[in-house]
Deep mutational scan, measured.
Amino acid sequence: MIVFVRFNSSHGFPVEVDSDTSIFQLKEVVAKRQGVPADQLRVIFAGKELRNDWTVQNCDLDQQSIVHIVQRPWRKGQEMNATGGDDPRNAAGGCEREPQSLTRVDLSSSVLPGDSVGLAVILHTDSRKDSPPAGSPAGRSIYNSFYVYCKGPCQRVQPGKLRVQCSTCRQATLTLTQGPSCWDDVLIPNRMSGECQSPHCPGTSAEFFFKCGAHPTSDKETSVALHLIATNSRNITCITCTDVRSPVLVFQCNSRHVICLDCFHLYCVTRLNDRQFVHDPQLGYSLPCVAGCPNSLIKELHHFRILGEEQYNRYQQYGAEECVLQMGGVLCPRPGCGAGLLPEPDQRKVTCEGGNGLGCGFAFCRECKEAYHEGECSAVFEASGTTTQAYRVDERAAEQARWEAASKETIKKTTKPCPRCHVPVEKNGGCMHMKCPQPQCRLEWCWNCGCEWNRVCMGDHWFDV
């Protein structure tokens, strides 16, 4: 396979590697080409510095992935760790964990309700045991953590790749202090920090972006993250068709209702045909949960890209028209025109101005929308079919299609509260000796007794199943 190397943020060049090629071997190839010592090179990928003893497969490097290699003399205490030698983080029983690669970060837990604080980093599902597709590297999971809308060759929703760059020099040479644990960490600028490894760059702020994971991409090709779309790892039924499908869209209502993408497309087109989208002054033209839940309008309007190009163009047109109407304007009634106009409040005669090729020149009556006339309008008909009709959803289907309910059931079956801080902690095999993952707590306690870890627990039921 081919990976592209950008040395000291210059133009990239291809390097041929195998899945079992080590990072140090990659350094040696680059060092020979650039005429520099291999031990002064640092390989940066997806916000993480890659260790010498890791392989291309370990690092989730795919065909035509772009890695950054910078030349920086080692500072005291760094060289041993980078070589894969006596790194205290690798000691058996050590409590410190390697910062998780962005290629394996899962933010789907952050669609849980606000009262489930902490689960994004504490609760991990076991539903990723799908067998890898044919042709994928051994052991590589097909679980997708992110979804994007690819405006490039795909023109559809695709699995996405999370990447990070330095907000100062805009190069992907920043190593994160810690990985993101929720969508806010990724979507809110300057929320996460790190250290830029580019020479002479003092940058410390992280800037995240997404790429389409279905095809090789260049540095400049980015895609918009659709953070309401998630892999259906909890096997929730769709609120409309009641099938279990994946991926799904999880509405931001209190129940976190789930809808499959085909039904979401149908829901949007139906509402669009009836012009029953909601115009929100802050958000724009949007839709609420299909069950009509309060405070559930979709905030990231790129989710409506699921409509496809033709329907999305209609959505944008109707949204612009609705904006004009909300501002007190009118639409030209001549067939084939429909231009938005903003006449004076007491102006009865409205002319669709033909300047700049935008208007048709038609003069019409503001009251009856017919060709302009003197005197009273002959008839004014009330528009028919403008009443909002509820999208029919079966109550039982709505009850079963809740992301929140599956989460709470998982928590109930696989977790116990920490005796000190009461945060839910998952036990997935292993011994009875637990350690609270909350940095402010870190209590060592017994899963069996529910009390602080002691010699009695150690001698009596340390390794009970």
Rank of each mutant, 00 (worst) to 15 (best):
V5A: 07
N8V: 00
H11F: 04
H11Q: 05
S22R: 11
Q25K: 07
K32G: 07
R42A: 14
L50H: 00
N52W: 01
Q64E: 13
Q64C: 13
S65I: 03
W74F: 13
G77H: 12
E79F: 11
M80V: 12
G84K: 11
E96G: 11
Q100V: 10
V111K: 13
T125I: 05
D130Q: 11
A134H: 10
S136L: 12
Y143N: 08
S145E: 03
F146T: 03
Q158G: 06
G160Q: 01
Q165G: 08
T168V: 09
Q171M: 12
A172G: 12
T175Q: 11
L176I: 08
T177V: 10
Q178H: 11
D184Q: 08
I188G: 07
M192H: 04
M192R: 05
M192G: 03
E195W: 08
Q197F: 08
P202H: 11
P202S: 13
S205Q: 12
F210D: 00
C212L: 01
A214T: 07
H215R: 00
T217I: 08
E221H: 10
S223M: 07
A225W: 04
A230S: 13
T231G: 09
S233N: 14
S233K: 11
T237L: 06
C238R: 00
T240E: 06
C241V: 00
V244W: 03
P247Q: 06
I259W: 01
C260W: 00
L266V: 14
R271N: 12
F277T: 01
H279C: 08
L287E: 01
C293Q: 00
N295W: 04
E300C: 07
H303T: 12
F304T: 00
N313C: 09
G319L: 05
Q326S: 11
R334H: 06
P335K: 04
A339E: 10
G340W: 04
G340N: 05
G340V: 04
L341E: 04
L342W: 10
L342M: 11
K349W: 03
V350D: 03
T351D: 08
E376A: 14
A383T: 12
G385M: 09
T388G: 12
Q389Y: 15
R392W: 12
E395L: 12
R396H: 12
A397G: 09
E409D: 14
K412T: 13
C421Q: 00
Q438D: 04
C446F: 02
R455V: 15
M458W: 03
D464S: 15
